[in-house]
């Protein structure tokens, strides 16, 4: 699953004044070209979200009217009566559980890779990144039989597969954080008489907290945005927002409901993202 964070979150350092250097400053023609490109790119990224904004408030929008004929909030009621609230809770729960499992496992694996290099490190990291090269539906086709025979509850099955698809991201983010982590701090704290618990709480945790937040967010996104794994392994017992979107989008007359559900699918991760970037800006964690 291709997901990432904006550079503000990924980078330890941002070149605030990259363009300010006199050597690379552009001339007027270049500036106009750049503004035009920036405008075009902004439209490219935002345009697909525009229909959502209109349809959410469209109580009546028959073809071929270019704009909604009646505005209102009926779609919200319709979405709620389709079980939007339950699905929202289902999605939130799934995202949080996947995040709660995949983040600590990623931390452990990353610690092993970063601080205990051995001849096993290469195959271990190859295996941990393998999910990126294996389409999820392939694994699900195979596992479904296995999980049924082993009588694994479907919820556990969904969490298992999604955790595995989140692990490359959490491991990777934590591996980078540990690569930049100076173990000297730990040793110094030990020398000064800190216990292991104190070292973890007062030294290690503050140092890796931003990375931990990024890893947890990425894992949350994997659970939050999944459709196929939830559908095939969950077998309908677990209803999430993407499942409702799919069922509404394949019928007629549901465009407004699709829009409400889509906005529901967007708000929590965007809120988390803003929370993460905001904290960083204020320097809370760094």
């Amino acid at each position: 699953m291709a997901i990432t964070l904006p550079p503000g979150l990924n980078q330890q350092t941002l070149p605030k004044d990259a363009a300010q250097s006199g050597l690379t400053r552009s001339r007027a023609g270049g500036r106009i070209l750049r503004s035009a490109t920036a405008g075009a790119l902004a439209v490219w990224f935002v345009l697909p979200l525009v229909p959502l904004g209109l349809w959410v408030f469209a109580d009546r929008w028959s073809y071929p009217a270019p704009l909604p004929q009646d505005w209102g909030l009926q779609n919200v009621d319709s979405a709620l009566s389709r079980g939007a609230a339950t699905a929202f809770a289902g999605s939130l729960g799934l995202g949080l559980v996947v995040s709660a499992v995949a983040t600590p496992l990623g931390v452990l694996a990353a610690r092993s890779l970063a601080f205990h290099p051995s001849r096993w490190s290469a195959p271990v990291s190859a295996l941990l990144f393998a999910p990126l090269a294996l389409p999820a539906f392939v694994a699900v086709f195979g596992l479904n039989v296995l999980l049924v025979r082993l009588q694994v509850p479907s919820y556990a099955g969904v969490v298992l597969v999604l955790t595995v698809y989140a692990l490359p991201y959490t491991t990777y983010v934590m591996r980078l954080a540990y690569a930049a982590h100076d173990i000297g701090f730990d040793e110094e704290a030990c020398t000064l008489g800190a216990t292991q618990g104190q070292v973890f709480l007062r030294v290690q945790f503050p140092l890796i907290a931003p990375a931990l937040a990024r890893a947890a967010f990425l894992a949350f996104l994997v659970g939050w945005s999944d459709y196929l794994v939830t559908l095939l392994i969950g077998g309908g017992s677990l209803v999430t927002v993407p499942l409702l979107v799919a069922s509404a989008a394949s019928g007629a007359g549901n465009d407004g409901i699709v829009a409400v559900l889509s906005v529901m699918a967007l708000v929590p991760p965007l809120g988390l993202l803003l929370g993460l970037t905001g904290r960083r800006r204020r320097g809370g964690w760094s």
Binding site: T4, L49, W224, S225, V245, A246, S262, A265, L270, L273
Partner: peptide
Amino acid sequence: LSIPVPHIV
């Protein structure tokens, strides 16, 4: 903005 959009959405 488009990063957290699920593909189905």
